[in-house]
Design a protein around this nucleic acid. Structure first.
Lengths: 338, 338
DNA sequence: CCGATGTACTAGATCGATCTAGAACCGCAG
DNA sequence: CTGCGGTTCTAGATCGATCTAGTACATCGG
């Protein structure tokens, strides 16, 4: 496979701004002005330069640009490849960042690639702020990092010294419980997130809203986790004895486990059992699942996070860090059996 | 949140190599030599420079480094955030790339962000090669791209002019059919991938291996797709009439749909129905699924892709572009019912 | 004591862009 | 013709690193 030979340029190299300038008979500075769309170039020259740039197939070298202008306008993101909901947020961040004039640099976290390493890559690339989705590092590490660059954590509880953009988990759980109670459910169980980050808060919110709904005596909490298998395991216990009529799960994946266990046992959802998830992830929206779920509003979180980063970069205090979640009712909740 | 003031450096800016050099009383060039671990520095000075670098919290600026050295050693990757299997490959690529001395630059493709745009970001950053996981661009676009930088596609059928690293789909399907035939199955159906990329090839391989196994008269192909809902839909048709004893699905997500439909209908897997997937994704490995699946060997594909990219960068011809898949037998296949 | 060899180190150019300061040129009022 | 404000354009410095060429200074053989 042969690379293009640039006509008039050095063979095999991609054309530079200097090539464009030379080819159109202007200085590098003016060519730069034209390419940036800045003012200070005549209309005729502007078009001529743009035309030759197009002909040469010129692409500005982002490394060189970023190097010179102290503002890199780069936002770094760490996310976990195996978490579907992270993917959704990443996609929303792209949109929000572009709208705000930022470029996005992704760095994946995985079994082979610890978060610390992912973050280092971002720092080396010169990001102006780091958005970390469900950061797993300890408060001390995060604080150390925050001393080098503004850090915004998403989907995690607040850590002193770094901004956390998240949704109001208590409100989300309350909406779920109220929805079920309004449908007539009383035996509403909760499968918690085990030792996952937001688990304790959601558990507490569940207890409180059960009492608010006047069914505090029906509180029943099962140990769960963030993944399908946890939901299945909890469901085994849940469906064995006296069965509740509804379950609020820690998140969608956990809820999916409960659903599958129910299906396998021959239970009909929602006729025999109502299930509510949390995240409103793609998983919940799949045609065959149609899970009622608390929407974390990936787009909203992403926008808030980008806005927060932008504020920090301008050395301002950010606000609007807690978003209100909304319950999305689909096909896994209904009135309880008689 | 205050950023660190660099002792002796300009306030608020991260320290540069010049700062390190000045602070340890050597020239920038020598400091560079030490930081790169190149030879040509005395032992004593080397330690002194490293020490001051550590104290200043110096981090080399990758943009500047890459700008100067014509070799950027950057591999660009496009992947789809919502595809779990892509995530697995991405993670493996990180490992393979680092082992080969490359850095990795991710660019996500999604509903809001077309592949063309994702690729442009990579080019602007100066990647030496682009690895595209399941590229969606047409042959013409890919060819145009390949004229600017070596392009390696993963998981896609070969396109003239660009390298495709993939596994031998025919062999994978054959392994699945042979496994089922060996267990005693004759009524083995295939739910295909609809218009997904590798669908036609896998469908043909299914037909051929059925004939090879002497059960050509049992060939039965249902229209499916790459997602759970497609599996569910196909299963509706499949389980309604004369039921096969085994199904080979286009991929794991499709197989999962079939599994769920089976569970919901009260069928036991594998007692009443055996199911085989394709990809050996995390999905297949989940505790509650334990899906027998054809392993595409994400790590192997990643290594081959990186090796291929490295070869192209050295202007050599790559080889080993087709990997042999392996069947991973789990809990969804067994002997047929009497 | 001189020149050769080698190690430790430095000055300055360079990568490809941006940015600053100032030059060239225009038309127009005085 | 001169001076002035405004636009268009250019030369050269700059960002933070690498790389080349070459300078000091030791050591060593003759």
């Amino acid at each position: 496979m042969e690379r293009d030979q640039q006509p008039g340029g050095r063979p095999g190299r991609r054309p530079t701004l200097a090539d464009v300038a030379a080819a159109s008979g202007v200085s590098r500075a003016l060519a730069s002005i034209v390419m940036r769309g800045a003012e200070g170039a005549g209309e005729a020259t502007r078009e001529r330069v743009l035309e030759t740039a197009r002909q040469l197939g010129y692409r500005p070298d982002s490394r060189a640009r970023l190097l010179r202008s102290s503002r890199t306008r780069l936002l770094g993101i760490t996310f976990t490849v195996s978490e579907p909901f992270h993917g959704e947020i990443v996609e929303s961040i792209y949109a929000a960042a572009e709208a705000a004039g930022f470029e996005v640099l992704l760095s994946a976290v995985g079994a082979q690639r610890p978060e610390a390493r992912a973050v280092e890559t971002l720092l080396d690339a010169g990001v102006e702020a780091a958005l970390m989705i469900s950061p797993s590092s300890g408060p001390a590490d995060l604080a150390a990092l925050a001393r080098q660059v503004p850090v915004i954590s998403l989907l995690s509880a607040a850590v002193p010294g770094i901004d956390a953009v998240r949704s109001d988990d208590a409100a989300g759980i309350r909406a779920a419980v109220q929805h079920l109670a309004a449908l007539g459910h009383r035996d509403i169980a909760h499968v918690d997130g085990g030792d996952a980050v937001a688990s304790a808060e959601r558990r507490a919110a569940y207890e409180e809203s059960m009492r608010e709904a006047g069914i505090g005596e029906c509180i029943r909490i099962l140990h769960g986790g963030a993944h399908e298998a946890d939901g299945i395991a909890a469901a085994g216990e849940l469906l064995a004895g006296r069965r509740p009529t509804a379950v609020v799960a820690f998140n969608d994946r956990c809820a999916l486990g409960i659903l599958e266990a129910a299906w396998r046992t021959g239970l009909r959802v929602p006729d025999d059992l109502s299930v509510v998830g949390y995240d409103d992830s793609q998983l919940a929206r799949l045609d065959h699942v149609r899970l009622t779920s608390v929407s974390q509003d990936a787009a909203g979180l992403a926008e808030a996070a980008v806005a927060c980063a932008a504020a920090r970069i301008r050395s301002e205090e950010p606000d609007g860090l807690v978003l209100q979640p909304a319950l999305v009712v689909r096909s896994t909740t209904g009135t309880p059996p008689d």
